[in-house]
Design a protein around this nucleic acid. Sequence first.
DNA 1: CGTCCACAGGAATGACGGGCGG
DNA 2: CCGCCCGTCATTCCTGTGGACG
Length: 415
Amino acid sequence: MQQKDALDSIFERMLNQSRIFRDREVLQHHYIPNKLPHREEEIHRIVEVIAPALKSYKCSNLFIYGKTGTGKTAAVKYVLERLMNKSRELKAPVRSCYVNCRLAGTEYRVLSSLCSAVDVKVPFTGLATGEIFERLKDGLNSQRSSLLIVLDEIDYLVKECGDTSLYELTRVNESLQGSRVSIIGISNDLRFKELLDPRVLSSLSEEEIVFKPYNAAELRDILQERAKLAFQEGALLEGALNLCAALAAAEHGDARRALDLLRVAGELAEREGANLVTEEHVRLAERRIEHDRVIEAVRNLPLHSKLVLCSAYLLAKVDSSRATTGDIYGIYCELCKEVGLEPLTQRRVSSLLNELDVIGLLSSNVISMGRYGRTRRIRLGVGRSVIKEAFAEDERLKRLIDHVPRCLAASTRRS
DNA sequence: CGTCCACAGGAATGACGGGCGG
DNA sequence: CCGCCCGTCATTCCTGTGGACG
């Protein structure tokens, strides 16, 4: 108790003392502002599509596409919240369920979230997915209400589990009396449509909205809107804000990125006791974010992936130009011997290399060396020093990168 | 112009741990 | 406690292929 009070007072003091922030919560991803600049039109269209739910009509399914940080999720959540408020006001039987398919992870967990939205209790694992589906239907049948399902990052669900459950969902209305289910699918991968069964696709995208990336000017408006709430009067240099907008605009117009830059820049300024956030802080923030991302990514890697990455690192150190799957695999096997581990097959390592490529720690592309086969050329995706720093956290890896050159000498001799 | 390298990357299958209902 | 199903990781086997070399 006493401790809590003591801590509270520290927090309080820090909040009051902050010369930079007024309310940093505003810069977090999950914060939904009550005004979304440059998305008025999209919001209007979403409302038009889902408003019929208030009158218990079936509304069209909606498919929303746009790159990351274009405001898809924010716009949908914003509309959803307003709709739910309205429905409470009118006592309309509307329910909604927002699921992020990537965070949910599996088909099963997506379905179980839907179940909990209609007050159906299901164990969090153990049941066959078909069974879950039946229980969901039973739940809906006994409810007589509209259910609005938002499937965020829906492409993930389809890539992992195929489109069968989506197919079932789109036609669940046929076996329901009284209840109505509508689906809003959100994806940032447009090619995802190619993976879908045409029947599912046509049903899912009865309506379709594309969110375009923001340009620098639009990003600036968004940042200004938030900065007014987040920062103390005069604590943010206009140039700093503009730089955040420009950097993010150069990178697919990602508003999330712009907000991250602004928040971290503010934190850096605060930590060094400055009373002004400058362009310099934004530059530092840019590097800081990348740095933290890499350290975090490496930390969460399974051991074998770390060893694969380590091989790439060591190879880059001696010969940064050509590293192929075969080269990496050779060194990787040596490293395994060094640590006393049974090496995985080359097929498996090939997949691991792919995964490392996806998270950006490596960058690889398939090349053909004609007579000498077809392979992937692999380079580090980030600076060597950062990787080294990340490895330093792990005792075993730290030892490896320090004194392995012995086995390297053998494998690089052939050229 | 065909061959053939050194892999890419799909499909099927197996081993294993976790969690459930009965 | 058992049998069952699931999800994850890994292996095995496989077919496919761009282009330098002969």
